[in-house]
Design a protein around this nucleic acid. Structure first.
Length: 837
RNA sequence: GGCCGGGUGGCGGAAUGGCAGACGCGCCUGACUCAAAAUCAGGUGUCCCUAGGGCGUGUGGGUUCAAGUCCCACCCCGGCUACCA
């Protein structure tokens, strides 16, 4: 009976964490003699404490980091804090502390939580985006963008959240409501700073192709939808009796001859002059007023009734000169395309419905093959392809060809051209809040808007200000900040008091990690070239559009400015979007009271158990339910490894993993079986962790090996040859588990290998082909694809021998009675299928 | 409406065209124990129930010697986007 101590995670975990910290075990540096691997998790918002979602995210990333190190890669695995932003500011206001104080104390707390989970970060690269040494570079990028015209100021209707007292980017409006607080978003006319992300729309879309295979299809599709490219034409309709024109965007230029009216958004800039002096002007203005007053959600609802009103004005068909009445419609959006739509009721369901309602005559112009369309007989629009009719010289042309031909004809007379339209809008980065990076510009009474000279960076966010209970920014009323002198003329001037959207900080942090302490520049060229791109990025799918689109955009602009390597087009080669940790089928939240606190779980079971359960419960992409019995199961498995080790400790030799190979002296059948399982498990676990990111099946495979060792341990411990096999298998178990549960593995390894060698310096075990060979194999016999029997045959049995053995099998004979064998399919080493009738 | 993902035991989930349900949870049986817990060993899709067999991966077809897996049509669930012109 062994006297080995019992498994006490708390003491061994603290011991190893201390050692990793004092020895800086996971610090890394550029090393051209090794291949690099950059693994990164989406950095946390310092909200107070970690939740299980963080733990799952970072546990996945840590397995990747530790596994790649064992494979011989030079691994960069950094961590930092997405530290600016509204939630921290609001939380601080509520507690009546300064946002900086709140943020830094949260960071301190969460940092120690991360350390208690044993994650293998290079802590020397830790960064916080609210630190001036970080946002200084962001201000420099902003100035560069200003110089290149990639950032501009515009007065326009903006998404305004009345509760948060700030504007929101389009990406931050969800179903018409604020993504943070769910208040309905209002439209407010403001002058704001925008980043010209639309200038990169084409590249952002095209480069998604490069990410196929590395990124989940779901995320690629979400980005494609968001960018929303549609090909078509811009067509110009001259106004009757006036100099101006109305432009429309259409994807169906082939239906041009079927245009019977024009529909404008009520907000269209020409509307005012079109209706002026018309007999029912008052009625039209009332209509416009009514539509304008509907809020965004109401107006974009599915079931809203299509409504319109005739303006009394006409435009002219660009090819035929026919008079086309101009209507206003509540369904036309001012922000999309040109805010004007050419209406073709015969081939667009929306226009069809509209024309029915208002009794507008129409004509079909695209006839589907084999049909004969008449306007009078149509009960819905014919939106499919066909051949042109009622279209002058284009009659008979197939519709796809006609698209090009008609646009060409229009182009010749300057009334149309092929164009591409995007749904993507420029990114509003101004925030009317305090806790963010200041926008480095100054407004001078004489010189106008003046960029802050680079030598004056950073523009420091003042920390000696008092936040306000309503959340409004104190910056405009802080003279020491807002009042300044003009860098050009030295006269009186005011600073910009808007701050930048926090998504700007998170758009480039991955690059800063490569030389996080550099003070004379944002990046270090050599480090960038060596480390980027990120090989594996891991985070929640909720960032599929916002953060991941912005970070891709920033990579492209910083590349074009020369900050990032010119061949770096995409920041993240591979993306893993981990699922949520649920409780009783729904998301953990304080209001529902179904939150599991990581600290409590670590205290109860240890960090290794928490990590193990997060990885074993489900494949990483899928959501899973946190269950007490599940985490107990994970803990039971670690205890089982510990007990197995204790049981055989006195028989173990301090060997390397996979040290027992087929070349060893003759060993018992059981020992051979164990050795085979050991090597097969290394092969499977390596593929599951390294190629497929299926940690759950890798763990399951190790469990099988441990189960087999339990059954075999006593017999193996009884002979020298058996002890070698047992020792090798035990060490292999520790090696394979060490990326997942590093503390317990390191502890047992150290107990066995008294030479001071550390498991994390050991390579990932190498399986051996010879050890996988068997003498006898079990082959499945099917009749007509149904399993009927199994036979044991020599591994090198040939086709003829297998066929013969199969036909002689008693069970097979019985099933074949009265049947004629037609064909026998033999897959050597696996299966025999007898086709009989 | 468009695009994307997914439907497998009581539950979480395995299965790279080749034994469906690995591994874990739960449950059942046995060992140990005065007893319980812990642990160890074994069992656990379903129906007929004896060997053994029938049926089983949302539905209906197809390809194949062989389909959870590939193809076609459909149903249901989830996500993104949407009067997008």
């Amino acid at each position: 009976m062994s006297t080995f101590q019992r498994y006490d995670p708390q003491s061994i975990e603290a011991k190893w964490q201390r050692r990793w910290e004092t020895e800086k075990t996971y610090a890394c540096a550029v090393d051209h003699s090794k291949p690099k691997y950059y693994t990164l998790e989406m950095f946390p918002y310092p909200s107070g404490k970690l939740h299980m979602g963080h733990v799952r995210n970072y546990s996945i990333a840590d397995v990747v980091a530790r596994f790649r190190r064992m494979q011989g890669y030079n691994v960069l695995h950094p961590i930092g804090w997405d530290a600016f932003g509204l939630p921290a500011e609001n939380a601080a206001i509520k507690r009546n502390v300064h946002p900086a104080e709140w943020t830094y104390s949260n960071i301190a707390n969460m940092r120690s939580q991360l350390k208690s989970l044993g994650y293998s970060y290079d802590w020397d690269r830790e960064l916080a985006t609210c630190h001036p040494k970080y946002y200084r570079w962001e201000q420099e990028f902003f100035l560069k963008c200003l110089e290149k015209g990639l950032v501009y100021r515009k007065k326009a209707n903006q998404n305004w959240c009345p509760k948060c007292n700030t504007v929101l980017a389009n990406e931050q409006v969800v179903d018409g409501c604020c993504w943070r607080c769910d208040s309905p978003v209002q439209q407010k006319e403001l002058t704001q700073w925008f980043m010209r992300i639309t200038a990169y729309a084409d590249e952002l879309l095209a480069d998604l192709k490069k990410l196929e295979g590395g990124w989940p299809d779901r995320v690629l599709s979400m980005q494609r939808n968001w960018i929303g490219r549609s090909e078509g034409a811009e067509i110009v309709f001259p106004l009757e009796g006036r100099e101006e024109n109305i432009s429309v965007f259409t994807t169906r230029p082939d239906t041009l001859f079927g245009v019977v009216f024009m529909t404008l958004a009520p907000e269209h800039p020409l509307v005012d002059s079109l209706i002026k002096g018309k007999e029912n002007e008052a009625e039209i203005r009332a209509f416009i007023e009514r539509i304008r007053n509907m809020d965004r959600i109401e107006r974009q609802a599915d079931d809203i009734e299509k409504e319109g009103i005739f303006t009394g004005a006409y435009c002219l068909h660009p090819l035929t000169g026919r008079r086309i009445p101009i209507w206003l419609g509540n369904f036309v959006l001012a922000e999309y395309g040109t805010g004007a739509v050419m209406a073709v009721p015969a081939h667009d369901q929306r226009d069809f419905d509209f024309s029915r309602k208002y009794g507008i005559e129409f004509i079909p112009v695209v006839q589907p093959e084999g049909e004969h369309l008449e306007a009078s007989g149509m009960d819905h629009a014919a939106e499919g392809p066909g051949f042109l009719i009622n279209s002058g010289e284009f009659n008979g042309m197939p519709s796809d060809k006609a698209k090009t031909a008609i646009v060409e004809a229009l182009a010749k007379i300057g009334r149309g051209k092929k164009t591409v339209n995007f749904r993507l809008r420029d990114w509003n980065i101004s925030r009317q809040r305090y806790w963010g990076a200041p926008i480095p510009v100054i407004y001078c009474e004489k010189c106008g808007m003046v960029p802050v000279p680079e030598k004056d960076l950073p523009v420091l966010l003042p920390t000696d200000v008092q936040t306000r209970p309503d959340g409004r920014s104190p910056l405009p009323d802080t003279p020491s900040f807002a009042e300044c002198t003009c860098p050009c003329c030295g006269g009186k001037a005011r600073r910009e008091t808007d701050t930048m959207d926090t998504f700007v900080e998170s758009s480039w942090y991955f690059a800063r990690y490569t030389a996080a302490r550099k003070e004379d520049g944002a990046f270090d060229a050599e480090a960038l070239k060596y480390w980027l791109p990120v090989d594996q990025y891991i985070g929640g799918v909720e960032h599929a559009i916002l953060h991941l689109l912005y970070a891709r955009f920033f990579t492209k602009i910083l590349r074009d400015f020369g900050y990032l390597p010119e061949d770096l087009n995409e920041p993240f080669s591979n993306l893993l979007t981990q699922g949520m940790v649920l409780m009783d089928g729904s998301k953990m939240s304080k209001s529902k009271g179904n939150v599991v606190d990581p600290d409590a779980m670590i205290a109860k079971y240890g960090a290794d158990t928490v990590r193990l359960f997060c990885l074993f419960a489900a494949p990483p992409e899928r959501d899973f339910d946190w269950t007490e019995s599940g985490i107990e199961g994970a803990h039971r498995f670690l205890s089982r490894i510990w007990r197995l080790y204790g049981d055989v400790r006195d028989s173990l030799l301090p060997v390397a993993a996979c040290s027992s190979t087929a070349k060893d002296a003759a060993i018992s059948p059981l020992a051979r079986e164990i050795r085979l399982k050991e090597h097969a498990t290394v092969k499977k676990a390596g593929e599951d962790i390294g190629d497929r990111y299926q940690f759950n099946t890798a763990i399951a495979a190790v469990m099988e090996l441990v189960n087999a060792l339990y059954l075999a341990k006593d017999e193996l411990a009884g002979s020298d040859a058996g002890r070698k096999v047992l020792s090798s298998a035990m060490c292999t178990v520790l090696s394979m588990m060490s990326p997942i549960t590093p503390h317990i593995c390191e502890e047992l390894w150290a107990d066995l290998h008294k030479d001071g060698s550390m498991l994390e310096q050991q390579p990932w075990p190498a399986w051996n082909e010879d050890a996988l060979q068997r003498d006898m194999l079990t082959v499945v016999i099917q009749i007509n694809g149904k399993l009927r029997s199994k036979i044991k045959v020599p591994a090198d049995a040939g086709r003829d021998m297998l066929e013969k053995a199969a036909l002689e099998d008693p069970a097979i004979k019985r099933h074949l009675e009265g049947l004629t064998v037609r064909k026998i399919v033999v897959i050597p080493g696996k299966l025999i299928n007898i086709v009989a009738a």
